[in-house]
Structures are given as C-alpha cells and as structure tokens.
Design a protein around this nucleic acid. Structure first.
Lengths: 160, 160
DNA sequence: GATTCGATCGGAGGGATAGTTA
DNA sequence: TCTAACTATCCCTCCGATCGAA
C-alpha cells in the first residue's frame, strides 16, 4: 500500500465515480484507469475479467436493455483503442454498430438505436435477448476474450 | 489537498506514466483521467446525509421509477425500525404504503403497486413525478430529516 | 374558486416470435 | 425443399402527464 497526495478536484472526481458506498480509492482508480486485477494474477474467474459483475447492486435495478448498454459502455471504456472493430458486426442488411445514429436508421426500420453511454458509438436494440447475447459475444470475441469467459459472463449478466 | 491510500500496483502504474522527473501524483492522474481544468468542487452536506447521491454511476442508468424505489429501499435499510411509520402516508382514498400488495390494490384502481426492494413494504407507483417527490418528502420528514435537505436531495435524485 | 387527489390513457420501451431471406 | 439466420412487426408492460373528480 502506498499513500499519495492529490488535489481536491481530483479527489472529488474520484468520489463522483464511486459505484458502491464506501468504495476504496484503489478500487475506483482501478476501474477508471482500466486496470484489471491482472497485476495481482491472471485469474480465469469471470468476476476478475468482467469486474462489473462485482457490482450486483447496480445490476439488480437494471433491465436487460440497460444492462446491455452498460456492458457495452464498460467495453468501450476498457478497450477504447480497439472498440471501433465492433462496427464490423452486422446482419445481412442491418448495421448493428456505428459511429452515428443515421447509419443505423438507414440500415433497417425500427432498429431502435441507442447511444452507448459515454462513447461515440451507437447500437441497435430491437432484438431478442438471445440476439443481444450473440451481439455481446461477438463484441468480446473481437476484443480478445475467451469464449468460455464470455458465455459465463452472459449467463450472469443478462436475465433469461 | 487530500491523502488517499492505493495498492502498490496502481502506484506502479502511475509511476510508469510519469512524464517529468518528479511529476506529482496529481499531475499524472489529471492527465490519465483526462482532467485538464482545475475545477475544485466543494463536497455537499446533502451527499453526506443521503450517501446514495455519491453513486451517480448507478443513478444515471435508472429511470425515475427505479430511482424512486431505490431511494425507498435505501430508507428502509437505514431506518428499519421506524420505517413502519410510512404506512400513515395516504391520500383521501388510496393507501400509498402497505405491508402487502392487497391493501394497496383494494384502496384504488391501477395503483401499480411495487415491492420496495429488500423490504416487506409495498408502494403505489401510478403517480406523476411531482407526486413521487411529495411522497418521498413525506417519508423522509417522518424519518426526521430536514425539509431543506430533503428538497435538495430530490432536486438531484429525481429527473424533472 | 382554489387546491389536492385519482386514475385514465397516450406514448415509449422491451423483446418474443412470426414472417422473411439467404 | 429444408434449415438457419435475420428482420421488424406487434403485443405487452411500464411510465407518468394530464384532466376530471372531490
């Protein structure tokens, strides 16, 4: 453990990103800086890889659509550099991801596009839960995650 | 200035992003977190009283109804002993709170009752946002909070 | 009148599934 | 023709502003 001194506004910024009451500075920073507990050890535990699974309090008040968007938002934050890859995920006619609303709207009707929170990307949303799972699978596969980890995560993260 | 304690690996990570010899932790963090401007913010009293306001990350993914229920759930956890008082909050005909679904259903039509998460209490939900605010006001007044604190909290917690 | 209360109903959101296409 | 994958219609639930009743 180390002790550091920081300006008040930085401190306030950290507080503003608390996700659990009483969350430690370390925990907040770990999330904001996109650091897994990798440094400690690479664990195959799903909760280590997908650290948002450690926030059941947050998830239990969300429906599948909100979770879907939240997970994508997390993925963007964690893989800002690589995330653009996801625009290659698409159907026969519909685009699933895009940098702008119009691209999605033009690619189909009633696609129900939503912006991925805190990102410049948009997703379509008019899909069954099964399809949402496939889409998330594709996203995380592209980002380099293992199939077993992904499906384990989805089983926890999305309601049947 | 604030002092925080962080894990060694986070500290190492910060050191690894030093751009000048002897650069301060604050300076590194400011860069890594994308905060260029100094915007010192004073921590509010309201956030101390209603500590769930420190969880904007959670709240921003919720709609007013979910927030309404979440706040009631928080109030129950915090005042488990006194919470039963809230059943005295009611309209002319409708019951607003009860220990069971039926009481609420019988007291009106389409009251849209929901269980307050992790509590044995139920609330009606078919109300305008303004009415939801009044209900929360009444709850917290009964629980001994100050009117100014309550309305300050509501201004933050429920979307207009 | 003025104000509070109730609950109808329009609108949005969610997503299963029927229908279509490859 | 059959099957698998994809699309988007459409029903249902949820939300809560608004208007009529008290």
């Amino acid at each position: 453990m180390k002790t550091i001194v920081i300006d008040d506004d930085i401190y306030a910024h950290l507080l503003g990103h608390t996700q659990e009451i009483g969350e430690s500075a370390t925990s907040i920073l770990r999330r904001l800086l996109g650091l897994n507990t990798q440094s400690a050890r690479t664990s195959s535990d799903v909760q280590e890889t997908f650290d948002f699974l450690k926030l059941p309090e947050l998830f239990r008040h969300m429906n599948n659509s909100q979770r879907f968007l939240f997970i994508l938002s997390w993925a963007f934050r964690k893989h800002e550099k690589d995330f653009a890859k996801v625009v290659s995920i698409e159907g026969n006619r519909r685009k699933y991801f895009a940098r702008d609303l119009e691209t999605l709207q033009k690619s189909g009707s009633s696609v129900n596009p939503r912006q991925i929170p805190d990102s410049p990307f948009w997703v379509i949303t008019n899909n069954s839960t099964a399809k949402k799972c496939e889409m998330l699978s594709d996203v995380f596969r592209l980002l380099g995650y293992q199939p077993e980890d992904i499906s384990a995560m989805l089983r926890i993260a999305l309601r049947p």
